[in-house]
Design a protein around this nucleic acid. Structure first.
Lengths: 315, 315
DNA sequence: CCTTGACTTGAAATGCATTTCATAAATTAG
DNA sequence: CTAATTTATGAAATGCATTTCAAGTCAAGG
């Protein structure tokens, strides 16, 4: 492989001059610049990125830890991140964790080893106490709120959004609502439960099903909800795909939406648009964009992204 | 920042010995190994990845060029790639191209600059002639078939799959079918048209709508198809989300599926499963896995991934 | 007692580009 | 016509870990 020394030798200049040409510094004599460029062209030379990164101590690459990548919510986040990264000429490396704390640590170690300039944590398996020391080695931005000042946040006030959604259902006359969540241990689930208590009080037995991710999960959840002795009149689904599954099951029973059953979804996804579902749009794409911006700016700000209640015909 | 020299000095050994400890070579005296590890621990030292990559000339990172990342098909590909990469301890950097040939070249230049060990091209904007020279700098694997021996391929015989799908429709008594495609210039569209001609002959006016990607596009396409004077009795949708949109539109007209209208989708996606759509499953996840394997093995094989016709109730 | 092989270790070369420092020539300002 | 800039260039230091080479110790085998 030809390197900068070869180019310098062949062009009859020093490596410094070649480097200057490479980096478009002024103060290189026109004829020298040209002969260097000519040799570069002839030798088909491209500088080695590792040598550059090594000396500059910067990579313009951001690692994105995300538990699942086949999940519409994380896809939206990733989308926003990619868009902003592209705009700023940063590269994104996807770091699938499956909520394994070991994997997560492995990725944080890579930040320490300088592979990334920063890391975005879309969802985490480890305690903040474990993660924080790594903020010495690059900016760490979370898509979930935390008070720790070492961590930048691009987050949603999920609690309020859940309050709003439940209030909407209550206003429409529902005394309770069934609901689904993803991971039982997640922060989001905790906020959901808090909001539920705030608006409706105790959760009736069978009204909460967790581990829902996709349309099929929603279909099954609806099946279970509608078999309960105290049939719910409204359901909050943690995602429009899940909501879509519920919709389809209800339709299969000839039920009318929202007269027989109100359904409210989340994230304003294609299926929801197609089926005309009312939805809580957390604007995850914007969350992703903001998270990426924070990493790029090495900022530790806490930025709250507004959510929107999109009212359509299912409530 | 503390480096390997500091560790060596503090542990009273040479850098070679530290390196040996770092890389778990045997033939390091037990007491020296221990004292090196102790110093590493104390100094909170992590080797610089760029220095390692520079000298090893390897990164265990693969770049994945994909035009859009918010597209279910590319998501499935990426999914397979990520799964296989994780398994083999490789990292994936996502390279969004939006079909810009400049961007694509930029990414190929990064391969040349040693940032990646290889690149997977899920879909491309440039000619093979432009791309091929870069195969000198790392393995390039395509998710589309090409005869060029420099390029590994993990591909689907789309032509045959389209033939099968159209034949299925014909067997059910349809004399023609409307269909949607994504990009008009794509290889896939070309194969689609060829297969159509083979089975049904000329495409009736208005029977082909391109630039369909999502559920809404399908909804609108169905609207257009069903307004035609010669109403199609069957539709092939280039994706289950698109098919889902068509299904919903047809249902909104109180049509019965498949009696009034047969719909066949593609990629076996959640919506399709939920709606019970017959679909051509190109097994894109497997395509992605195989593509990743080929890059890892630096293989230039051409591997055809079998597709499956999943018959459900919409045809 | 000598040879052979296993074990240990460090010096130095290697991979590659950037940047600082020093120096020199050519301009411009006063 | 000096003094001060601006322009131009190269040597050498820097960033950091791996690997080869050479050489040495020690124990086992003959």
């Amino acid at each position: 492989m030809t390197n900068i020394n070869d180019i310098a030798r062949l062009a009859g200049v020093s490596v410094s001059t070649v480097s200057r040409v490479l980096n478009n510094y002024k103060y290189v004599a026109k004829n020298k610049r040209e002969s260097v460029l000519k040799v570069i062209e002839e030798m088909n030379y491209t500088p080695n990125k590792h040598a550059i990164d090594l000396i500059r101590g910067e990579t313009r690459t951001i690692g994105v830890i995300l538990p699942y990548n086949n999940n519409p919510s994380f896809d939206q986040l990733l989308n926003g991140i990619l868009a902003k990264a592209l705009e700023n000429d940063f590269l994104i490396t996807v770091l699938p964790s499956k909520y394994s704390s070991e994997k997560e640590m492995e990725y944080l170690e890579k930040l320490k080893s300088k592979l990334f300039d920063g890391i975005i944590i879309t969802s985490r398996a480890n305690d903040w106490e474990t993660i924080i020391p790594y903020s010495d080695y690059g900016s760490i931005v979370s898509c979930e709120y935390t008070e720790h000042t070492e961590i930048g946040c691009s987050y949603i006030d999920r609690y309020s959004s859940f309050l709003d959604a439940f209030q909407l259902l209550k206003n429409k006359g529902h005394q309770a609502a069934a609901f689904t969540t993803a991971r039982l241990e997640s922060n989001s689930t905790k906020q959901m439960l808090d909001a539920y208590h705030e608006i409706f009080g105790a959760v009736p037995p069978g009204y909460h099903i967790s581990n829902c991710q996709c349309l099929e999960d929603g279909y099954e959840a609806a099946q279970q909800f509608l078999q309960l002795p105290e049939r719910p009149t409204a359901i909050y689904a943690n995602g429009d795909e899940v909501a879509g599954g519920m919709y389809l099951y209800a339709k299969s029973l000839q039920m009318t939406i929202p007269a027989d059953l109100a359904i409210i979804g989340q994230e304003n996804q294609p299926v929801g648009i197609g089926l005309g579902l009312t939805t809580v749009d957390h604007q995850l794409m914007k969350v992703g964009e903001q998270a990426c911006s924070l990493v790029i700016q090495k900022s530790r700000e806490k930025v709250k992204i507004p959510y929107r209640l999109v009212e359509r015909a299912s409530v």
